[in-house]
Structures are given as structure tokens and as C-alpha cells.
Amino acid sequence: MNPVNYLYLAALLFTIGASGVLIRRNAIVLFMCVELMLNASNLALVTFSRLHGNLDGQILAFFTMVVAAAEVVVGLAIIVSIFRTRHSASVDDSNLMKL
């Protein structure tokens, strides 16, 4: 098997995540989709690392994980505070920015 298959898998997961962001309305699920996209790119990075035979890709994936963790913390805090004020976790309900 060619390790490129991992890349195909990553592409597939990324696409599913991206579509999820567009389709789902629940903010939490939306966040999960973002996480899935990040994971997909991590997989790609790890695969690249293997293709090139150095560890830089893995380092990048590692940083991605750290940033994702930070992002999740802040994002979930935002979701919670939005839910508190608007009693809804649907992103469609937060549409005050429209004209």
C-alpha cells in the first residue's frame, strides 16, 4: 500500500468536516467538525513527515494540537456564554450581524 492513501483519507475527512461546518447548526457539532478538519490536517502532516523522513511535520502536528486545544477552550467558553444569554446553541440564532 502506498502511504499516499493516508493523504486521501485526510482529504476525505477534511472535506467531511468542512461540509459539516456548512451543514450543521448546533454550535458544538460545528466545533467538532472544525476539530475533525484539524485532525485531518494533522494526519496529512504526519504522513508528510513520513514521506520526507524528518520529524518537522510531526512537530507541526503537535503545535496544531496545542492550538486546537486552546481554540476549543475559548470556543466552548463562547458557546456556553452565548447559550446563557440566548438559550440556544444554534448558530443561526446568532444573526444579529445582518443588516
Binding site: 502511504p3 493516508y6 458544538i28 466545533f31 467538532m32 476539530e35 485532525n39 494533522n42 504526519v46 504522513t47 513527515s49 513520513r50 510531526q58 502536528a61 503537535f62 494540537m65 486546537a68 486545544a69 476549543v72 477552550v73 466552548l76 458557546i79 456556553v80 447559550f83 446553541a89
Partner: peptide
């Protein structure tokens, strides 16, 4: 793929911590 450290971190941090955080929030929100 030889990324042993990342694999473990993925399980411990991602699946273990982040996903649990998600679940907590899901519980909180309903």
C-alpha cells in the same frame, strides 16, 4: 506511521481531554 508520541498525545489530549470537554459542554447545553 511512526509518530508514536503524537499517537499517544492524540489519545490522551484529544480523545481524553478535548472530547470530554465537548461532552461536558454538551451536557451543559442540553
Amino acid at each position: 506511521q511512526g509518530a508514536v508520541f503524537l499517537g499517544v498525545v492524540q489519545i490522551v489530549v484529544y480523545t481524553g481531554a478535548i472530547m470530554m470537554l465537548f461532552l461536558f459542554v454538551v451536557m451543559l447545553v442540553g
